[in-house]
Design a protein around this nucleic acid. Structure first.
Lengths: 342, 342
DNA sequence: TATCAACACGAAACCGTTTTCGTCTTTTTT
DNA sequence: AAAAAAGACGAAAACGGTTTCGTGTTGATA
């Protein structure tokens, strides 16, 4: 019953030729006579011969695998990035090995070490919260020093020299804030995470820049910094009750959802009484009621871009150390949670 | 700059011993003298030696990789399953290679063939829509006949002999329908997919069974079959306008969301005028307004269970062909879209 | 007919490990 | 002191391929 995988050796023995002849015949080498080639190819086809990937990897020192390490997979954004990576990588004949760091520094290190010992040709990753907090990038440094190509996306660090893909978070927040200001909103609350996230910092910058450009003071009381896990709805409610904003900008999708729920419970109408804009154009924003205007991060494009950059590096012979940083432009998707200006 | 990965050969040459000695010393073999072992181990540590996974895989015919093929990754359910698989697999020292079939038969076949040639020790998968529609399972058959362990989850087929994990879909739909009946609802619409999904069929069965047990006729006009992609909201609206149900049961999350939006637009109050229950307890159901009562499928547990079954098979020496089917019990998560009976 | 390509194929090294089976020393036993 | 038994290490095969470099046959050339 158990049809064992067939190898070159089996074919060679069966047809009474050498292993090298079989190998060459299957690659249609000119060295081998027409007759022999046909015989071998027919036999191989009959028994559905497929070369063993592992053996080829060992020989070529190329695995055709790319390692992806992300903080979490239940976030819609990361999920779309993976899809983009998969798209591009599969088309180029690569497999994608996904590992989750669970936002933990330790898991990130363990996973990297696991993959770095020959399992993959290169990394695509986004830093875990733990890593961003600890600011320890030695595991990344080691890997890049070994000559393993790496592309960082979204949550990146300037301490590592490698290719990067990010969206222009400052610009995204700027455009979103400007949209709210243009609507006539003046008291714009910002729901953000703790400071160590590079991404949140930039969105905060964009928010402040827009206010300044508009000639408004930046009021720190309008900014609420929340831990990124275990969201405390009561805290949001207290904050919003106290400052009574006429608009909310959230640095992610979920804070925006919570914010909307709170103000709706207070009897406010979105967007008549208060406008809401979130980051990350995910399913929640799209299907909320009202649907939430969002800054789209184009995760799929990000994934494709990252995969493209990585595979180019992997397949390029030259060892020149030039690194690119690709900055994607975010898009404001206008929905029902903001006033329509048309 | 480029610190080349160090191998046994390097160590052997540097310390003027044989490769075998180095290998044994690093495994703390009794064969090697204390002095030599210490010297070698110190050297290996200093240069951060890590054995090459590929070489070990080739030697052992074990990759410590498990291949996961799922139809889509942006579905929250699959995402939670992956998380469960990752959890368990990583703890056991396995990597997870994720491939997406994109609901396509062809991509499923290609991905399986790619992985089946030595890259992985076993498969965990859920059938693509294309495969369920086509009812062609030869690629699965080939893989299992080669002795590669496989676990099917959620979207399974009885045509393949292997381990399976699923939830009791009949029971899930039964409980949900019963809940609606107990509320006094009598005109329960069912939003479902086309027939070829094993999962939807079972949910349909549970729905009918509950009605019958309650002494009600099953009215086929109350059932709307929708294509699973490119949801046509107008069709849902027309359907609901026509039959004017007092409850909606949806076989997934998204149809429920659309259903709710349609009835809310008509001015109906959920749950006062109409109750809604969906399948798959995802973020959309949780954060909808009102939040939607759902049949939880426990994706993470499903993933863990599948990984556990697979790894047990992979690591068991005996070749006995006994296959288990693990049936998980769904849970009804009551939320705001149904009447509270307390 | 001796020489030389061209042809068709095989031997062997190699990728980085693991592991079995020698083999050479040294120590213990009788 | 000779024989046996440890002790410590190396050679080599194996995993499944690829590839370089022979080498033995042909057939053509001089």
């Amino acid at each position: 019953m158990l049809k064992q995988k067939i190898t070159l050796k089996h074919i060679a023995k069966e047809l009474d030729v050498s292993i090298s002849t079989v190998s060459k015949a299957l690659k249609n080498s000119e060295e081998i006579s027409r007759d022999t080639k046909e015989k071998i190819q027919a036999f191989a086809k009959l028994y559905n011969y497929k070369p063993n990937n592992i053996a080829i990897s060992l020989k070529n020192k190329r695995t055709k695998n790319i390692g992806v390490i992300i903080p979490d997979i239940v976030h819609h954004f990361f999920t779309t990035v993976i899809r983009g990576i998969e798209n591009y990588a599969n088309a180029k004949g690569y497999n994608v090995i996904v590992c989750l760091s669970d936002e933990s520094f330790d898991k990130e290190v363990i996973n990297m070490e696991m993959l770095a010992n020959g399992s993959i040709d290169g990394f695509i990753m986004s830093l875990s919260a733990g890593t961003e907090k600890k600011k320890d990038f030695n595991h990344l440094k080691e890997v890049t020093e070994q000559g393993i190509p790496m592309v960082l996306f979204d949550r990146v660090t300037s301490e590592i020299n490698c290719d990067k893909v990010l969206i222009d978070d400052i610009q995204g927040a700027y455009v979103a804030t400007k949209k709210l200001l243009d609507e006539g909103r003046r008291k714009i609350a910002l729901l953000t995470t703790e400071d160590f996230f590079s991404v949140s910092m930039n969105r905060n910058k964009g928010y402040r820049k827009a206010l300044k450009d508009f000639g408004l003071e930046v009021n720190p009381d309008l900014v609420l910094k929340l831990p990124f896990m275990d969201i405390d709805e009561a805290k949001i409610e207290e904050f919003l009750n106290q400052i009574e904003p006429d608009a909310i900008l959230s640095v992610n999708e979920i804070f925006g959802i919570y914010g909307m729920r709170v103000v709706q419970r207070k009897g406010l109408n979105v967007p008549k009484d208060i406008s809401i804009i979130g980051f990350t154009d995910g399913l929640l924003a799209k299907h909320a009621n009202p649907s939430i205007t969002s800054v789209a991060q184009h995760g799929e494009l990000m994934g494709e871009t990252a995969a493209k950059m990585l595979i180019e590096k992997v397949e390029s012979e030259n060892e020149e150390e030039t690194y690119r940083t690709e900055i994607l432009q975010p898009t404001l998707i206008e929905r029902e949670s903001t006033l329509n200006q048309v």
